[in-house]
Amino acid sequence: MIKWQSRLLEDCIERVAHSAKIPRSQFLEAGAHPVVSQEAEFINGFWDNSADLFRVTRPVIVFGDHTQVLKYVDFDFVIGADGVKILKTKEFLYPRYLYYFLIHSRLKSIGYARHYRLLAKINVCYPSLKQQKQIVAILDEAIEGIDAAIALCEKNLANVRELFGGYMKSVFAQKGNGWTVRKLGEICENLDSRRIPITKSVRMEGNVPYYGASGVVDYVSGHIFDEEILLISEDGANLLARTYPIAFSVSGKSWVNNHAHVVRFNCRYTQKLVEYYLNAISLAPYVSGMAQPKLNQKSLNSIPVPVPPLADQVRIVETAETLAASIARLEANFQQKLKRLAELKRSLLQKAFAGELTKQSVEVIEAAE
């Protein structure tokens, strides 16, 4: 029978004083010591000055005050500035046990505000130190396998997503007979003057998609467009980061704000070809501003686009659409598998902190998956 105790998190950790915190802009790409910050990646940069090291004599947990990222760190490191909280457990609490407990105790997000004030008031439930270590040993073994499966699934998902881009790049690299190069502004009509942004406070709820730079941001009543158009991001970090497509076709009723260019083509195949092309190339030469990247209308119109004869356009687009449909099915399968793995992980943690976790229960849960 496991006997549990409970204390507020702030009563479970020691006060940590360390003044050296390195701004993100000063991180090195390589160096003697790793920098750990509140970013998602485990190691976020490097630093050479040993005087700035946070010396780890007992493993600590790094908590991202803004991001809620949790990292278990058992080596000396340099602290990245802003939003990093170091959680050093008192002797009655096993550090890795608290790490798993905090993963299990997900906080409600309050945006980019600071979350530590919420974390400090969490009730940490814990058994004896010996039993904490037993729970951790079981979780370590089980979660290592789950995390390996997640990593493989994410790698396969990334590979699938690269298939389409790779195909389109090969198409545009192997131009055939009759291909020409035209400026984008010469082959489409720009409809930016018809865009109307609506602030959230005055939008009327409806079923018409309201588009911004990276896709649908809301649904509203009424529409500006009721036709097939191509939207192209005008501003935002995604113009350079390319986390999402920057060009996307829209048909039917729609409302577009001033963060996406609107262009219209005479031919659907030309429109789709341009969409694929813009999503396949780097737009860095046409984007101004680094802090607030922007693709203005003049630069957009100047982008040279390879244009094949209509018969080739039809063949390329139809092949691309077939490939895209196959990739979408594969993506859906991998996303579903990732969802199941995340649910398995949550189930294990739930059992662990309800006192129900044994090696046998892990085997039953894994077999059910």
Rank of each mutant, 00 (worst) to 15 (best):
L273C: 09
K88W: 00
L93K: 03
Q134D: 14
V56S: 10
L184W: 09
N333S: 10
R268M: 06
K108G: 13
V287D: 03
K169T: 07
F225L: 02
L344F: 08
L184Q: 11
R15W: 06
L152G: 12
R182F: 01
G185Q: 07
R7C: 06
I229S: 02
I2Q: 12
L273A: 06
V136L: 04
V274I: 10
G176R: 01
I138A: 10
L107N: 13
I187P: 08
K155E: 15
T319H: 12
L70R: 12
G176A: 09
A311R: 14
V220Y: 03
R58T: 14
T358G: 08
K200N: 11
R114W: 00
A367M: 02
N266S: 15
C153M: 09
E363Y: 00
E162S: 14
S361V: 13
L278I: 10
Y97P: 04
V160Q: 03
V171S: 01
V250W: 13
D140K: 05
E369G: 00
E91D: 14
A113P: 03
L102E: 07
F92S: 09
P209Y: 00
R15T: 13
Q132N: 09
Y126E: 04
L349Y: 09
L341D: 09
P293L: 05
S347H: 09
L152C: 09
T243W: 11
I187F: 05
K359V: 11
G215V: 00
G31H: 02
P59F: 02
T57V: 06
F46W: 15
L129K: 11
P95V: 01
Q26R: 14
K85M: 13
E343D: 13
I196D: 12
N266P: 03
A142F: 00
A332Y: 00
K3D: 07
F172E: 12
L139R: 03
I2Y: 06
D147C: 06
Y286I: 08
G212E: 04
R264K: 15
A237K: 07
P23S: 11
E154Q: 15
R329K: 15
F42T: 10
F248I: 08
I246V: 15
